[in-house]
Computed example of a mutant assay.
Amino acid sequence: MIEFTWKVFEETGSIDTYLLFKELEKDRQDEPLNTDHEFSELDFPIS
Score class of each variant (00 low, 15 high):
18 Y>V: 06
20 L>Q: 14
9 F>T: 04
16 D>I: 14
11 E>S: 09
29 Q>A: 05
43 D>W: 09
40 S>D: 11
28 R>H: 10
35 T>E: 13
10 E>D: 07
37 H>E: 15
47 S>M: 14
44 F>K: 06
25 E>Q: 12
17 T>G: 04
46 I>W: 05
3 E>P: 02
2 I>K: 07
12 T>N: 01
12 T>I: 01
16 D>W: 12
4 F>V: 04
47 S>N: 13
45 P>Q: 00
16 D>E: 11
22 K>R: 13
46 I>F: 07
33 L>D: 15
4 F>D: 11
35 T>P: 04
15 I>F: 09
47 S>C: 09
12 T>W: 00
47 S>E: 12
45 P>E: 02
35 T>M: 13
34 N>D: 09
40 S>V: 08
5 T>M: 13
26 K>P: 00
19 L>M: 08
6 W>Y: 06
17 T>A: 14
28 R>K: 11
35 T>Y: 05
33 L>H: 08
12 T>D: 00
2 I>A: 01
23 E>H: 13
3 E>N: 09
6 W>N: 03
5 T>Y: 09
25 E>L: 08
3 E>V: 05
19 L>Q: 07
28 R>A: 12
3 E>R: 07
41 E>N: 11
41 E>H: 09
42 L>W: 08
9 F>A: 08
7 K>N: 11
33 L>P: 15
22 K>T: 05
36 D>E: 05
40 S>T: 12
1 M>L: 10
21 F>A: 02
37 H>T: 15
46 I>E: 15
6 W>I: 03
10 E>K: 01
38 E>L: 03
40 S>P: 02
39 F>T: 13
38 E>T: 13
17 T>M: 13
13 G>Y: 14
40 S>G: 02
31 E>F: 11
14 S>L: 01
46 I>K: 12
46 I>H: 13
1 M>W: 06
30 D>T: 03
34 N>V: 12
45 P>S: 01
8 V>C: 07
15 I>A: 06
18 Y>Q: 08
29 Q>N: 02
36 D>S: 06
33 L>R: 07
40 S>H: 08
44 F>L: 10
42 L>S: 02
27 D>T: 10
20 L>I: 10
8 V>G: 06
26 K>R: 13
15 I>S: 01
2 I>V: 13
29 Q>M: 14
7 K>A: 11
17 T>N: 07
12 T>E: 01
11 E>Y: 06
16 D>Q: 11
11 E>A: 08
14 S>W: 00
27 D>G: 09
34 N>L: 10
24 L>P: 03
43 D>A: 14
16 D>L: 14
12 T>G: 01
23 E>I: 12
11 E>P: 02
5 T>Q: 12
32 P>T: 09
8 V>D: 07
7 K>D: 00
7 K>I: 04
41 E>T: 05
11 E>T: 08
15 I>Y: 03
32 P>S: 07
6 W>R: 10
47 S>P: 08
24 L>D: 05
35 T>C: 09
46 I>D: 15
16 D>A: 15
16 D>S: 15
33 L>N: 15
28 R>V: 12
36 D>G: 07
44 F>H: 10
45 P>A: 00
37 H>Y: 15
19 L>C: 12
27 D>H: 04
41 E>C: 09
15 I>C: 04
5 T>S: 11
18 Y>M: 05
6 W>A: 04
35 T>Q: 13
44 F>S: 11
13 G>L: 04
18 Y>P: 01
11 E>G: 08
15 I>D: 06
33 L>Y: 05
7 K>Y: 03
3 E>L: 14
